[in-house]
Simulated scan of single mutants.
Amino acid sequence: MIETADHDGIAVLTLNHGPVNALDLELLTAVPETLAAVADARAVVLTGSGRSFSAGVDLKRIFEGGPRYVEEFLPALSVAALAVFEHPKPVVAAVNGHALAGGCVLAAACDLRLMSGGTIGLTELAAGVPFPTVPLEIMRHAVGPALDALVLGAGRLAPDQARSIGLVHEVAEPGLLLAAALRHAEGLRAAPPDVYALAKHQLHRPARERIDAARASDDPLVQEIWSSERTFATLRGYLASLRRP
């Protein structure tokens, strides 16, 4: 589900879960578990297998699981995103293809983001669902004022477009992506681990304060909308459209 490899003290974590690394409860649960397992690594590179980093939420699992699945899924999404965002060591995203919705959030949770192809963006509003607090605030930290257009437009950006708003820091050739990500991770890990961790904590403090302030009031409403009949009717129509010849 998540493959782990060591590159001279840098842990390379590769999402390997189906053809597009769609986010379901099992993959989200594996993210914090895998990060805990590589806690001794000096840095982490997060990437995807195949042609996608992660194409976002597994909507079929949401539809089939119903409100009870949503009740487990949404907290797991927040826990996974926070585990990446608050990992004390350097974390570099090697975005090898599409990174959409929750996949975009996982990439944005990394300290540095490189991309080689595909599209990246927040498509939640196009699917008729709102953002839990944690993903929204991680995105606000990553792109600042550009967040409004990214959320409300629900569009997809090419790598160069994503770089222009700070969502991606560097565009790399596909065959050179991992090597570039490892090089950046090597550079970031040059700082003493405790110094890097403190600097990261200080930089992330405003996002964490916003999360703590809004989570209790906003997330129950988010879950209610995700679990609503309207949302499931939308998913029913969308999934049916995928089966049409």
Score class of each variant (00 low, 15 high):
residue 205 R to W: 13
residue 227 S to G: 00
residue 228 S to G: 08
residue 108 A to G: 08
residue 193 P to I: 10
residue 71 E to K: 12
residue 225 I to Y: 14
residue 10 I to R: 01
residue 105 V to Y: 03
residue 216 A to G: 09
residue 58 D to T: 02
residue 122 L to E: 14
residue 73 F to N: 03
residue 61 R to V: 00
residue 212 D to L: 11
residue 125 L to S: 12
residue 175 G to K: 08
residue 31 V to E: 03
residue 84 V to N: 01
residue 163 R to G: 09
residue 33 E to V: 09
residue 59 L to Y: 11
residue 59 L to E: 01
residue 72 E to C: 09
residue 181 A to F: 02
residue 54 S to F: 09
residue 51 R to F: 00
residue 189 R to G: 06
residue 227 S to Y: 01
residue 4 T to E: 07
residue 194 D to M: 00
residue 208 R to Q: 00
residue 79 V to A: 15
residue 176 L to P: 13
residue 36 A to V: 02
residue 16 N to Q: 00
residue 86 E to L: 14
residue 159 P to Y: 13
residue 31 V to K: 05
residue 157 L to Q: 08
residue 17 H to Y: 04
residue 113 R to M: 10
residue 95 V to Y: 04
residue 191 A to E: 07
residue 116 S to Y: 04
residue 200 K to F: 07
residue 34 T to V: 04
residue 199 A to C: 10
residue 97 G to E: 03
residue 163 R to M: 13
residue 135 P to S: 06
residue 24 D to Q: 02
residue 237 G to R: 14
residue 181 A to V: 06
residue 133 T to L: 13
residue 245 P to V: 12
residue 189 R to Y: 11
residue 101 A to F: 08
residue 240 A to L: 14
residue 202 Q to C: 15
residue 71 E to F: 09
residue 209 E to Q: 15
residue 89 K to G: 13
residue 16 N to V: 01
residue 18 G to Y: 02
residue 46 L to Y: 02
residue 135 P to E: 07
residue 142 A to C: 15
